[in-house]
Amino acid sequence: MKVRELHRTEAGAAVDAVFRGLSPRSRYLRFHTPVPRLTTTMRARLTDLDGRRRAAVVAESRRGPVGIARLAATGEATAEVAVAVVDPWQRRGVGTELVNALGELAGGLRYAELHGDVLGENEGVLRLVRRAFPGARLTADEGDVLRVSFPLTPDITHEDLVADLRW
């Protein structure tokens, strides 16, 4: 498996492949509501990448895309993050690889903070956040949704933080 930046011209095929690989439960956990199919509007939003304000990384096996992590700017130095990994590849390190790569991409794009919303019942993603972003803040947003925020500092890269954890 390899992880690399996803470009606009290939985003549609990757989004479609990953969405097809998600069970109804995984789709619910990702979108916070039942999503039996991607609407035209949702697909357009997920594939609209410019490499700066909207960027993504894709994890690929020999058979094709198995996960996507994307960021969407919410301010000059802040971006929202979302991750999806197809069911057969969950709990195999793909999510960790994706968020590590996205953290590096975000740092290179000079984002100071990443954030995202996670359902409180999504234990897998909460474990991933705690592993990949040890300084993350979890705050109650609305209902069962938690807001995860992680500051990126210009002097300490996400890669440095992950390397420190391996000691």
Rank of each mutant, 00 (worst) to 15 (best):
G21F: 15
L146F: 15
T74A: 03
G108C: 00
V15G: 02
R110E: 01
R8L: 10
T78L: 03
T139N: 09
K2S: 09
V148K: 08
L126F: 00
A112G: 05
R52H: 08
G21W: 14
V81Q: 06
D87S: 14
S149D: 14
E80Y: 08
L119P: 02
L71M: 14
V148L: 13
D160S: 06
L29A: 10
G143F: 13
L138D: 00
K2E: 12
A112D: 09
E142P: 01
L126G: 00
E159P: 02
T47H: 03
E5K: 06
G143I: 11
V18H: 05
A17I: 00
V83Q: 07
L98Y: 01
K2I: 07
R110W: 02
L6E: 04
A82C: 10
R45Y: 03
A69T: 04
A106F: 11
G93R: 15
V86K: 12
R4A: 15
V118H: 10
H158I: 08
K2A: 06
E76M: 08
L165P: 02
V125W: 04
S149G: 13
V94N: 12
R52I: 01
R166I: 11
R8P: 07
A84C: 12
A56K: 02
N122T: 11
R25L: 14
L126D: 01
D48G: 01
V35I: 05
T47N: 04
L119I: 04
A56W: 02
V83K: 05
T39D: 08
L128Q: 12
D48L: 03
A56Y: 04
L105G: 02
T139I: 10
A79H: 04
T47S: 10
R92T: 12
A82H: 08
